Computed example of a mutant assay.
Amino acid sequence: LRLIRTLATPGAIPILHPAIMREISFWLLSGENGNEVCKLALPDSHTRRVAEAIYLLRGNFTYAVRVEKLAAAARMSPS
Rank of each mutant, 00 (worst) to 15 (best):
S30H: 13
N60S: 04
G34D: 10
V50P: 03
P78E: 03
A53H: 07
F26H: 11
A51H: 08
V37I: 14
L56S: 05
K39Q: 14
I4H: 10
L3K: 04
P10N: 04
A73Q: 08
A51P: 00
N33E: 11
S25V: 06
T47N: 06
E32L: 13
W27V: 15
A12V: 08
P78D: 02
F26N: 11
N60R: 06
G59W: 02
P10K: 02
T9L: 06
S25L: 07
K39I: 06
A72K: 01
S45P: 09
A72V: 04
A8S: 08
A51D: 06
L57V: 12
C38N: 12
G34Q: 11
D44G: 14
S79M: 01
E36T: 14
L56Q: 12
A53Q: 11
R66N: 05
G34T: 13
P10A: 02
G59K: 13
E32D: 14
M76N: 00
V65G: 04
A64Q: 02
R48M: 01
L28W: 04
P43A: 03
K69M: 12
L1E: 11
R5D: 15
E23T: 12
L40M: 10
L7C: 00
I24P: 02
L1H: 01
P14E: 05
L16G: 01
R66A: 10
N33F: 08
T47M: 15
T47G: 00
L28A: 11
L57S: 10
F61H: 12
E52W: 00
N33D: 14
R58K: 09
R48A: 10
A41T: 11
F26V: 12
V37S: 05
H17T: 15
E23W: 09
E68M: 02
A53I: 08
I15S: 12
R5A: 13
S77A: 07
N35I: 13
M21C: 10
E68W: 00
L1R: 00
P14Y: 03
N33Y: 12
A73C: 10
L70Q: 03
S30W: 03
R48N: 08
I13C: 04
V65I: 15
T9R: 15
E32T: 14
R22K: 14
I54F: 07
N35F: 09
P14G: 07
V50H: 11
K69W: 00
S77I: 02
P43V: 03
G59A: 07
A8K: 08
E23F: 05
P78H: 02
V50Y: 05
I13G: 01
K39S: 13
A71H: 00
I13T: 11
W27A: 13
I24K: 04
V50E: 02
P43D: 02
A74H: 06
R22L: 07
V37N: 00
I15Y: 10
R48E: 01
S45Q: 06
H17R: 14
R5N: 12
M76K: 13
T47Y: 00
L42W: 04
P14R: 08
E68G: 15
Y55L: 10
R49P: 09
E36I: 13
R49C: 14
A71W: 03
N60F: 00
H46R: 13
I54Y: 07
I54K: 12
